[in-house]
């Protein structure tokens, strides 16, 4: 067992656990959007940042991918952490303004509005990547992937056209932390010509 501190409480974890796993095991609250036990952690949303302290030294790390280590001193709610979470949520309020989940999370951090302009009022996707990971790692099909990079990044099937590779299993819709995938499924799934006559068979 590995012993360390979270918010000045002594906790114990198995080797190989992450700080997030341990914190949740003990009931410490750490927000996440891109994390799910079923898939490999990706450290994308950065909401789960925690602060490691050692004397005057301190550093922020993503708890979902940070492995536990003996004697570390973890803090889950400091001013630096709140600053990171506040800006992420404020930016998400303008990026995926249609998401009730994000509005609720933001409200928990005292944010009701955003200083940034809203360009796409219907958007709900914040590119956490859970859908692409579940499709590749759990379903084993990799029907969808992230496309492009940077601010142009999006989720889609090849050439952004519906694909027959998708079997409409619905895993991506289920794992999506907002309702973004629900509205995209028609852009991903192409019904094969033979299936049109017998949509329920197979």
């Amino acid at each position: 067992m590995i012993t360390f501190q979270i918010d000045n409480h002594t906790v114990q974890a198995k080797a190989g656990w992450t700080v997030l796993e341990t914190a949740r095991h003990y009931g410490f609250e750490i927000p996440t959007l891109c994390h799910h036990e079923a898939v490999t952690p990706s450290g994308a949303c950065r909401l789960c940042m925690v602060e490691l302290r050692d004397g005057d030294w301190s550093k922020l790390v993503a708890s979902c991918i940070y492995p536990v280590a003996e004697g570390i001193n973890v803090h889950t709610d400091t001013e630096r952490i709140r600053n990171v979470r506040r800006w992420i949520l404020e930016m998400l309020l303008s990026e995926c303004p249609a998401s009730k989940q994000i509005q609720d999370l933001a409200a928990r951090y005292g944010l009701k509005q955003t200083r940034f302009a809203i360009e796409n009022p219907d958007e709900e996707c914040m590119l956490c990547g859970l859908c692409t990971r579940v499709c590749e790692e759990v379903v084993g099909l990799a029907a969808i992937s992230t496309v492009d990079r940077g601010v142009h990044k999006k989720v889609g099937a090849p050439f952004l056209r519906p694909t027959e590779v998708c079997v409409a299993c619905g895993c991506c819709v289920t794992i999506c932390p907002t309702n973004a995938m629900q509205s995209r499924i028609d852009a991903v799934r192409r019904v094969p010509a033979t299936a049109v006559t017998a949509p329920t068979s197979k």
Partner: peptide, 21 residues
């Protein structure tokens, strides 16, 4: 950098374009 960001993490993907704004 906003053009070159891989776009994976939110602070970089959204933060740089917002700073630039």
């Amino acid at each position: 950098l906003e053009e070159e960001s891989c776009g994976k993490c939110i602070p970089c993907r959204l933060g740089l374009i917002r700073m630039r704004g």
